[in-house]
């Protein structure tokens, strides 16, 4: 089982990654969930969440990252995020308009406020996070097939 250790980068990088990947993930969730009251939002939060997984992959090699988030799961979650957004937007039809903010707005600058905006942010965050991770996977797994040159 020595193989497992040899994959990825050096011990220093792995240790630092072990310490930082969690906080990065958490920070992503913070940015995502406070999108409606402070700078940031779904896209930025999603990018930071994806970065946590990308760091894991860089430090430990792709196998251990895939154990945490398999490829099929990444693309599944990405589609789910998009459909979630669309479903939320479609629910606005109950109030008469597409994309209508149909939940109570609450008190400004509180975490639970702004009606449907935090939910949109979550949907976007899920979509962007999984999507960026999937793009990263696609880039590193790309093999150029020279035989195909006619």
């Amino acid at each position: 089982m020595n193989n497992e250790k040899d994959k990825g980068m050096s011990l220093i990088v792995k240790t630092v990654t072990r310490l930082t990947a969690g906080p990065i993930f958490l920070y992503g969730i913070y940015i995502l969930s406070h999108g409606h009251v402070s700078p940031g939002g779904g896209f930025v939060g999603g990018v930071i969440i994806a970065l946590a997984f990308i760091q894991l992959m860089l430090a430990y090699g792709k196998e251990s990252a895939f154990k945490k988030l398999p490829r099929a799961a990444a693309s599944f979650i990405e589609n789910l995020g998009a459909l979630m957004f669309l479903a939320l937007a479609g629910l606005g039809f109950t109030g008469g308009y597409f994309l209508l903010n149909f939940i109570g707005k609450g008190e400004p600058f509180r975490l639970f406020s702004a009606g449907i905006m935090p939910l949109y942010n979550i949907a976007i965050g899920v979509k962007v996070g999984a999507g960026l991770f999937a793009i990263f996977i696609a880039l590193i797994l790309l093999r150029i097939n020279r035989e195909d040159d006619r």
Binding site: S75, N79, A82, L83, L86, A89, G90
Partner: peptide, 15 residues
């Protein structure tokens, strides 16, 4: 709505 929803549903369920 219909075209975007269709696109994402296909990509979700194609397999």
């Amino acid at each position: 709505v219909i075209s975007l929803g269709g696109a994402f549903l296909i990509s979700l369920l194609e397999k």
